[in-house]
Structures are given as structure tokens and as C-alpha cells.
């Protein structure tokens, strides 16, 4: 390899090593320190690890993250699939629907979080006003201040944010299914429900895998929205891993424990990716696509 090519690959490599890969490894080292980020750090070995797991904090955060993952998948996958297939239809009004469906994609997680915190406000929020006008419930429901439903509400809002994206994925997948398959099935006397299960679903297999992988790995990193909406609360009802890590490191200035959680996060990300690669044949799919 000549010097020109080294020169071409060097900038990317440098950026990636210094600001992504090395920090990831440094986090492992930090997890063994007792440090507030300012004074001199002390090496304490596995103390932070034992501390984080013994008091149940890390376990709680991991458990919440898993719950969030499952909730997000259940909320987003069936709806996005149906909506994507719906939009892939050739009827004109569906195209117009599509224009509106994708609008939430234009807003940041912060913008969405702030808006929904107003929509759900128990005193002057729109949802409360609508429910009152329809005489449903007792009014002044504190949606995100109630620990038993806060995580569900957060997952629903995450769904509102991300369903448009996954709908887009499914739409583009469903559009690629050849019409001839449906026509043939119809002539064979298949009902629409039959062709949905015997043609649409199997043909969307790889889209389902891609979308699910993105939802699952994405749920590890939902931070912005939770920060804005609940800040991890009420109590620690929505304190998922990323949120817990942020609070430990940057609020409590406990770099060591924060790093423990960061490492757990990184390992979960890698393990999740490897598992999905193994069990879904995702890598085979990629090599198939390369030939297209």
C-alpha cells in the first residue's frame, strides 16, 4: 500500500481512535477509579462494580432498559409494519397520508420531549383538556409523574417519535414486493388476509430484522427524550442505563460508578449486535444484498 492511501485513510482512523475507540477502552480503566473528575483519582479495583451491583442500582437500571426494549419493540413493530404496508398501497390517498405520517421525523428528541411534557401536563395539558371534555377519567392525571405508568408513557412517546422512521423502512420494503406475487395469489383464490401472511410477511423478513435490530439497539441509547421528559424520575422509575450513567458521572460526579454503567452499556451493545447477527442471519442478508 502506497503512502497516498495511508494518507487517505488516516484522518478517519485518527478521529475514530481518539474520540471513539480509545475513550471506550479508557472507560474500562475509569471504572476502577474513585474519582470526582477534579481531584487526584485513586485506584480501587472492582469496588465500584461491587458497589453498583450490590445496592441494586445497576440491576434496576439494566432491568428498566430491558423493559424499555421490550415495550418499544411491542409498540413499534406491529404498528410500523401495518402502516408501512398501508402506505405501500397504490391508492392516491395513502400517498397523501404518508406526507403527514413522516412529519414527526423533522423534530429532535428534545423538541418532542418538551412538546409532550406540555401535552401531558396534568394542569394545562391538551390530553387532560380532551379527556375532561370527553368526561373520561377523573382529570388531572399525572402521566409522567406516576411511577407505575411513567415507563409505559415514555415508551409510547418514543414510539410516536420512531414509528414514522420504521414505517418508512417497511414502506420501502413492501414496495419492493413484486405485484405479480399478489396477483398470482389472488387468482389462486387467496384472501387478502392469506396473502398478507403468506406473501407480505415472509417477503418483509429482512425488513423486520433490520427494523427490530434498530429498535433493540436504539433502546439502549434512548437518553435525550428521557432526560427532557422525566429526568429518570419519578424516583428512579425511568432511570434506564444511559440516564443512570449520566447522573452518576455528571450529577453525582462519581466517574467510577458512571464508568461501570458505561461499560455495561457498551458490552450490551456489542452482545446485542453479535446475538442478532448470529440468530437472524443478518450478515448473510448483507452479503445477499451486495450482489444486487
Amino acid at each position: 500500500m502506497n503512502w497516498q492511501r495511508w494518507l487517505m485513510i488516516a484522518p478517519a482512523l485518527l478521529f475514530f481512535l481518539v474520540f471513539a475507540l480509545v475513550p471506550m477502552l479508557v472507560a474500562v480503566y475509569y471504572s476502577g477509579l474513585q474519582w470526582n473528575g477534579i481531584s487526584a483519582p485513586t485506584w480501587v479495583g472492582l469496588f465500584n462494580w461491587r458497589h453498583a451491583f450490590a445496592n441494586g442500582e445497576a440491576v434496576h437500571a439494566i432491568w428498566l432498559t430491558v423493559e424499555l426494549m421490550v415495550l418499544c419493540w411491542i409498540i413499534q413493530t406491529p404498528l410500523s409494519l401495518l402502516l408501512g404496508v398501508f402506505l405501500a398501497g397504490k391508492q392516491k390517498h395513502r400517498a397523501i397520508f404518508g406526507v403527514f405520517y413522516f412529519v414527526p421525523l423533522l423534530f429532535s428528541a428534545v423538541a418532542i420531549g418538551v412538546t409532550w411534557s406540555y401535552l401531558l401536563n396534568p394542569n394545562f395539558g391538551l390530553i387532560d383538556a380532551l379527556l375532561k371534555a370527553a368526561h373520561i377519567g377523573s382529570g388531572n392525571q399525572n402521566w409522567i409523574g406516576n411511577p407505575s405508568i411513567a415507563l409505559l408513557v415514555v415508551s409510547l412517546i418514543i414510539g410516536w417519535q420512531f414509528i414514522p422512521f420504521h414505517t418508512l423502512l417497511y414502506q420501502s420494503g413492501a414496495k419492493q414486493i413484486p405485484d405479480s406475487l399478489y396477483e398470482a395469489a389472488k387468482i389462486d383464490g387467496a384472501s387478502p388476509l392469506n396473502s398478507f401472511f403468506s406473501i407480505t410477511l415472509p417477503q418483509l423478513k429482512y425488513t423486520i430484522i433490520t427494523s427490530s435490530v434498530l429498535i433493540l439497539t436504539g433502546s439502549l441509547t434512548y437518553f435525550d427524550l428521557i432526560y427532557v421528559l422525566t429526568g429518570g424520575g419519578p424516583g428512579n422509575a425511568t432511570q434506564v442505563l444511559a440516564m443512570d450513567m449520566y447522573k452518576e458521572a455528571f450529577v453525582n460526579q462519581n466517574i467510577g460508578v458512571g464508568s461501570v454503567l458505561a461499560v455495561v452499556l457498551a458490552v450490551s451493545g456489542v452482545v446485542l449486535s453479535i446475538l442478532t447477527l448470529r440468530f437472524t442471519g443478518f450478515s448473510r442478508m448483507e452479503s445477499q444484498l451486495e450482489g444486487m
Binding site: 500500500m1 475507540l21 472507560a27 444511559a242
Partner: peptide, 29 residues
């Protein structure tokens, strides 16, 4: 060549790593 292949694989590992996991050392750096 093997070195370039290795570098590419490093970047692919990067796909699986969440930003949040590196934010503490990034802040220090």
C-alpha cells in the same frame, strides 16, 4: 491487505458502540 481489512472491522465494531458509553472519557479528553 490484512491491515486495511482490520481497520474496516474496527469501524464496524464502532457501529455497535453507543455514544453514551464513551461520553465520560470524551468529556475528560
Amino acid at each position: 491487505n490484512k491491515v486495511v481489512r482490520f481497520i474496516f472491522n474496527l469501524f464496524l465494531v464502532g457501529l455497535a458502540l453507543p455514544i453514551q458509553a464513551a461520553i465520560i472519557p470524551i468529556y475528560i479528553i
